[in-house]
C-alpha cells in the first residue's frame, strides 16, 4: 500500500470541498441549528434561553440523526460512479495505484471534509456555550461531537459502497436515499412493529442487538446513555441493557459500521 497515492487522492477530495465551500456551508448549517436548539429549544415550554447541556444534546441528537446520514450519503454517493460516468475512472485506474487505494483515498478525503465541517460547526457552538458550561458538560458535548463524526463516517462508508455498486449516478442517488429512509425512518418502526405484533414474547432478548444493526441507533444509544437525565426521557433505557451501552463497545460497533461497507465496496470494486 502506498500512502502517498492515498494522500494525493484524499487531498484532492478534501480541497475540492473546501474550495467549492461545501465544508463552510455544512459547518454553518450545524452551527445555526445547534445555536437555535440551545437557545430556543425550550420555547414550546414557554422558556427561551440556554437551559442545560443534557437538554441541548438530547435535542441535537434528534436533529443530527436525520441530518448527518443525509449529508454523508449526498457527499459520497457519486464518489466512484461519478468518475465512471465522466470517463476519468479508467484514467485513475491506469495510474500506478490499486483499487483499494483509490477507494480509501476518496473515502478519507470525503471523511475529512465531513469531519471538519462537523467539528467546526458544532465546535463553534461549544465555544459560544463554554462560559455557561462545567467541565463535565463540555466532556459530554465533546462525546456528542465525536459520535456525530463517527455517524457521518459510517453513512459515508455506506455511500461509497453505493457508488461502487451503482451503474450510473441516478441509480446511485436512488440507492442512497433508500438507505437513508431505511436506516433513519423505517428500521426503528419495523423493530417496534415486530415487538408489538409478537406482544414482546419473542425476540425481546435480541432486540438490543438488533439496534446495533443500525448505525443511527448506535449513535442514539451512545449519546443518551451517557446522560443520566436524558436516559429516562427515552423509553429505550428500559429495553436496552446497561452492559451493552458501554461507550467503547458502541464505538467499536460504529467502527465496524465504517469498515464493513468499505470492505464490501473494495471486494466489489476489484471484481
Amino acid at each position: 500500500m502506498e500512502f502517498r497515492q492515498i494522500a494525493t487522492l484524499a487531498g484532492k477530495e478534501f480541497w475540492d470541498r473546501i474550495r467549492n465551500r461545501w465544508v463552510l456551508a455544512v459547518a454553518l448549517v450545524f452551527t445555526v441549528f445547534a445555536l437555535v436548539i440551545a437557545y430556543f429549544g425550550g420555547a414550546q415550554q414557554g422558556a427561551v434561553g440556554f437551559r442545560s447541556i443534557e437538554f441541548t444534546i438530547a435535542s441535537l441528537v434528534s436533529l443530527v440523526i436525520y441530518l448527518i446520514p443525509l449529508i454523508a450519503l449526498i457527499l459520497g454517493f457519486d464518489a466512484i460512479v461519478g468518475e465512471r460516468e465522466r470517463g476519468s475512472l479508467d484514467l485513475l485506474l491506469s495510474m500506478p495505484l490499486t483499487r483499494f487505494e483509490l477507494l480509501l483515498g476518496k473515502y478519507l478525503g470525503l471523511a475529512a471534509a465531513l469531519a471538519f465541517s462537523t467539528v467546526a460547526g458544532f465546535g463553534l457552538v461549544a465555544v459560544v456555550l463554554a462560559p455557561n458550561l462545567e467541565l463535565s458538560a463540555l466532556y459530554h458535548y465533546f462525546g456528542f461531537m465525536l459520535s456525530s463524526v463517527l455517524l457521518g463516517m459510517a453513512f459515508l462508508s455506506l455511500a461509497v459502497m453505493v457508488s461502487v455498486f451503482a451503474t450510473d449516478r441516478t441509480r446511485a442517488s436512488g440507492m442512497a436515499i433508500a438507505l437513508w429512509f431505511f436506516f433513519v425512518l423505517v428500521f426503528d418502526l419495523l423493530l417496534l412493529g415486530a415487538l408489538v405484533v409478537t406482544g414482546g414474547r419473542y425476540g425481546g432478548e435480541i432486540f438490543p442487538y438488533l439496534l446495533l444493526a443500525n448505525p443511527a441507533d448506535v449513535f442514539r444509544i451512545l449519546n443518551i446513555f451517557a446522560l443520566d437525565d436524558v436516559r429516562t426521557l427515552y423509553g429505550l433505557a428500559t429495553v436496552f441493557p446497561r452492559a451493552l451501552a458501554e461507550p467503547w463497545l458502541l464505538g467499536l460497533v460504529m467502527l465496524a459500521w465504517i469498515a464493513a461497507p468499505l470492505g464490501i465496496a473494495t471486494w466489489r470494486f476489484r471484481k
Partner: peptide
C-alpha cells in the same frame, strides 16, 4: 494513457 472522451476535473 489517454482515454477516449475523457472529461477531466472542471474545477
Amino acid at each position: 494513457y489517454l482515454p477516449e472522451n475523457v472529461v477531466l476535473y472542471d474545477n
